[in-house]
Structure formats: structure tokens, C-alpha cells
Design a binder for these strands. Structure first.
Length: 516
DNA sequence: CGAATTTGACCAGCGC
DNA sequence: GCGCTGGTCAAATTCG
């Protein structure tokens, strides 16, 4: 919104580090980001997008000064004000000085040539990025198709009305998760995955979505798309909305998904963690077994936004704030809110896809695999069936060595399967990957991902931040989702370090490191 | 005065 | 059918 190019700029900048870029790359709009020497380490939440815009304006002003000189303005003194600390600008200034004795028209044509090269370079980068995104989406769609053929020999409709087909879930969730609807919905989700992928490009008629698709990664997009359906329909239980038909009455692709909830546990003294969204409290209840009331909030950033969240303090440890998100936003989000939304969407998508796929043995096997590996910071995946909805919990209350735990709480008995997941080290690539729990994905297939784990410095940085500041939760989400959702929507122009009020911002290095 | 919050009532789902 | 519980509504209240 404020700066539609910001995300893209960040992407390019992060890659320009490793390459010998032509000066043109540095001179592009990247001024706004690279010219701010304090930007990388800027931890001020007041550094809003407006500030970036102001900086852009200032640089534009400088550029205009330069153009004045290029036009042969007699006031050559403006050359001395051009130095913004940018190499290219300096080089240009130096070049101008060197060309002072030459014809201004020659200088102008030279600048035009450079501009042309810049545009050409930008165009190439855009096309490369677009191509990568498309390839990723295609590969993911193919993978889902392959998994479908592997695990869904029956056609979708047959599967939906076949209660006996719930054995997959039963393996995971034990006998208590024989919920037929859950199985149906999950099955539909899985069957729709490929369709979701393809629809990523079917929505190009939406101007805004077209922008988003330019650089969107398929995984989070698919997750959000799926959850879009889930949220908009699952929350349709409201009296104000039309009741969805039963599974048997609807075509497979129209069957609403089972609600997936994403719960975030974080230590915080504040009554509510800041996630960048605007919420309105609409109810409060005393929940059974917890002396602390549960507060109900709905998103008020757009009329009809289906997203709800529940906030409650943990009965065992009242310092722990449990925030449960449900649904997906139907409107553009500010960077901070996008971060959280991406994270919860990715987690929910992973839950939905994973709950249908993994077997107990698979979890155990994978646990054995990972626990036998030398991956530090292993955590656990918890399966339970007490919840009416499959719930995934991002536990940020643990010690720094277990900065983030992943608990899957579908239904039942509270059985715990050891599934080491080091979200910070193994990377949100896995955390947000719907296939992470797929038992038929050989461990070897995950190795490349695991090998991409960031250095310990990243881990330590995040972990230390979490340990030192409970409000870091939202910022961590921003960092995670900045990786999961790279690149994100055009209005997400804060390098993934959304301006979360009261929350410290992640060093840019985190995002840059993980992206590469 | 409008927006946000509080709080009791209401409804639906579920288990007995 | 009844009671319990979770979730939502909406009038009343509070706040800025």
C-alpha cells in the first residue's frame, strides 16, 4: 500500500549480496531501503511504512536535483547534495563531475542508457522470480496429485460418503477421532489441494490478487486459499450466514473444511498479544477448568471478516497467554498482521494436511530419525483428541533451546508422539510445509531442507529474543512467515518485520539469512 | 456522541 | 429430555 515495491526490493537486495551486481541494481528503487543505514538494525516500531515513503520522497527529491543538473542547470552545486551514501549515486555524481567538460546531452544519453539497463535488469529479475514461483506451484501441485493417487485411490465423492474410510485418521487420532466429518473434510482438503494450486492463477482477475501472485510462493498461498474457504465457511455457522449444506449435498469442491485452529502460547503480561490486527471483543466466558475467563475477539479490519480469536490465560501458568486463531482474513493485512496470518494459516494448513496423512508409526519413525540425528532443539508434537477441532499449538513459552514447539491437538487421549521439530533451526520451510508430516515422505527427502537450517546465530538470536521479551512472539511470527510466504503481498512492505506495536523488530539479517 | 467493552441471555452441540 | 458447556448476540455500560 504505502510502498508496493518494498517486498520485492527486499528480495532483490537479499540476493544481491551474493552476486556481483551491476551498479544499476543498486541504484534502483532500492535506495529507499539500502540508503537508510539504520534500516537493518532498526528496531523502532515507529519506523512505519510512511517513514519509508518519506525516505523515498526525499530520495526522489535528490534524484530530481540530479536531473536538474543533468539538464544542464547552472546550479551545479546540487551535485554536492546527491551523496546519499549509495555507491551508484556517488559514482554517478563522480561521473557527472568527470563529464562536466562534456556535452550535457551526452551525459543525459548516458543516464538514459543506464536507466534502460536498470529497467531491463528489473524486468529480468521479475521474470525469473515469476518463473520460480510458477515452477514451485507446479511442482507442489504435482506432488499433491501424486500423493492423492497414492493415498486416495477412491474418487472423492465415494470417499466422502464412505464412513469406513476414516481409518487413516483413526490411526493418527486413535479411536476417539472417528469423527466422520473430520475425515471428510480433511479428505476434501487433500483432494482440493491441486485445485487450490491451480486456482492460485485463476484468481488473476482480481487486481489485488494479481499483484500478490506476482511473487507469491505456492505453499502459503495454498494454505491461505484453503483456509479462506475454511474460514469463510466454517464460521458460516453464524446465524447471519447461510448454512452450508451437508457433505452429501455438495459437490466435493464446495464442501466446507473442518475448522483448524492455531493456538499460540506465549508468556506475556499483556492481556493480549499484539498481532497487527484490529480486534473487537464480543464476549467473555468462564471456561471449565480454568479460573481465568476466556475472551472472544473478532477481527474488525474489514466488515464480515470471519477471523475470530480466543484469548485465555493458562490455568497452570497464568503468565502464559494462549491465543487461538480460527479462520482466515478476507481482506488485505498490514505487514504485522500478514505475518501472523501467514504463520497461522501455514500451521493450520499443515495441520489439515498432516492430520490426514501421518500414521503413528510415521510419526514415531520420523521422530526416531530426527531424534537420532544431531539436530539440536528438538521438540515434540503432541497429538490429542480432546479438542472438537484439530488444533495446532505454537508453543513459545519453552526455554530458548525449545523456542518453538509444535503440538498437534486433534482429538482424544492426549497421547504424545515424539516428533522433533525445530522450527527455528530446521526452518519454517518445514513448519509451514503441508507435507512435513506426511509419513510417506522419506526422511531423506527432508534432509535438503534440514541442511538448509540457519546457523546457530539465527537460532540464538531468536531464542534469546523470545526468552527476553514475551512480546517477541509476534515478531517471531513475522520472521517465520516472511520466510514461509516469500515473497508476500505488495502491501507487505516492511521486510517481514512488521511494525508490531510494542514488539521489537527482528533484525533484517534473520530474514535475509533464512531466505537464502 | 460514537466506538469499544461488559455481561447476561440465548442457542447449539454433546453426553448421560 | 435434560443439563452442561462453548460460543455468540445484543442491550447496557464505559470510555475517549
Amino acid at each position: 500500500m504505502d510502498n508496493p515495491h518494498h517486498r520485492q526490493l527486499t528480495f532483490f537486495l537479499s540476493h544481491s549480496i551474493d552476486h556481483t551486481d551491476p551498479p544499476s541494481v543498486k541504484e534502483m528503487d532500492f535506495f529507499s531501503t539500502s540508503s537508510a543505514p539504520d534500516h537493518k538494525n532498526n528496531t523502532s516500531s515507529s519506523d512505519t511504512n510512511d517513514d519509508y515513503q518519506k525516505r523515498d520522497d526525499q530520495h526522489d527529491t535528490h534524484d530530481r536535483h540530479g536531473s536538474i543538473t543533468a539538464d544542464g542547470s547552472p546550479t551545479r552545486a546540487t551535485d554536492h547534495h546527491v551523496n546519499t551514501g549509495l555507491n551508484l549515486t556517488c559514482a554517478s555524481a563522480g561521473m557527472k563531475k568527470a563529464d562536466n567538460s562534456e556535452n550535457p546531452e551526452t551525459e543525459l544519453s548516458s543516464l538514459e542508457n543506464q536507466l534502460g539497463k536498470l529497467q531491463e535488469e528489473n524486468s529480468k529479475l521479475r521474470s525469473v522470480l515469476d518463473q520460480i514461483t510458477k515452477n514451485y506451484a507446479q511442482l507442489q501441485a504435482q506432488l499433491f496429485n501424486a500423493l492423492q493417487k497414492q493415498k486416495l485411490p477412491k474418487n472423492v465423492e465415494t470417499k466422502i460418503v464412505d464412513p469406513g474410510a476414516s481409518t487413516k485418521l483413526d490411526v493418527v487420532n486413535n479411536a476417539s477421532v472417528s469423527d466422520e466429518k473430520t475425515d471428510q473434510d480433511v479428505s476434501v482438503y487433500r483432494s482440493n489441494n491441486a485445485e487450490v494450486m491451480s486456482k492460485t492463477h485463476d484468481r488473476d482477475d482480481d487486481p489485488q490478487l494479481t499483484k500478490l501472485n506476482l511473487g507469491k510462493q505456492a505453499c502459503p498461498d495454498a494454505a491461505e486459499d484453503v483456509l479462506d474457504r475454511s474460514s469463510s465457511q466454517s464460521w458460516g455457522s453464524s446465524k447471519l450466514e447461510e448454512q452450508p449444506k451437508t457433505a452429501e449435498q455438495l459437490p466435493a469442491e464446495q464442501i466446507p473444511l473442518r475448522k483448524a485452529r492455531v493456538s499460540v502460547r506465549a508468556r506475556s503480561e499483556a492481556p493480549m498479544i499484539s498481532d497487527g490486527c484490529q480486534w473487537r471483543k464480543y464476549g467473555q466466558k468462564m471456561a471449565k477448568g480454568n479460573p481465568c475467563p476466556r475472551a472472544y475477539y473478532r477481527c474488525t479490519m474489514a466488515v464480515g471478516c470471519p477471523v475470530r480469536k480466543q484469548v485465555q490465560r493458562c490455568a497452570d501458568d497464568k503468565a502464559v497467554l494462549i491465543t487461538t486463531y480460527e479462520g482466515n482474513h478476507n481482506h488485505p493485512l498490514p505487514p504485522a498482521a500478514t505475518a501472523m496470518a501467514n504463520t497461522t494459516s501455514a500451521a493450520a494448513a499443515m495441520l489439515l494436511s498432516g492430520s490426514a496423512a501421518p500414521s503413528k508409526e510415521a510419526l514415531t519413525n520420523s521422530a526416531g530419525y530426527y531424534s537420532s540425528s544431531s539436530i539440536p532443539y528438538a521438540s515434540m508434537a503432541t497429538l490429542s483428541a480432546s479438542a472438537p477441532f484439530p488444533t495446532i499449538t505454537l508453543d513459545l513459552t519453552q526455554n530458548p533451546n525449545n523456542a518453538m514447539q509444535l503440538h498437534r491437538v486433534p482429538a482424544g487421549h492426549g497421547a504424545t508422539f515424539p516428533l522433533p521439530l525445530h522450527a527455528a533451526a530446521a526452518g519454517p520451510h518445514l513448519l509451514g510445509h503441508p507435507l512435513f508430516f506426511q509419513q510417506k515422505l522419506p526422511p531423506a527427502a527432508l534432509m535438503p531442507l534440514l541442511q538448509r537450517q540457519p546457523s546457530s546465530s539465527m537460532v540464538e538470536t531468536v531464542s534469546a529474543a523470545i526468552a527476553s521479551d514475551p512480546n517477541f512472539t509476534a515478531a517471531l511470527m513475522a520472521a517465520i512467515s516472511s520466510i514461509i510466504g516469500v515473497p508476500r503481498s505488495s502491501d507487505d512492505n516492511n521486510n517481514g518485520n512488521g511494525a508490531i506495536p510494542g514488539s521489537p523488530q527482528l533484525p533484517q539479517s534473520c530474514t535475509t539469512f533464512s531466505t537464502n
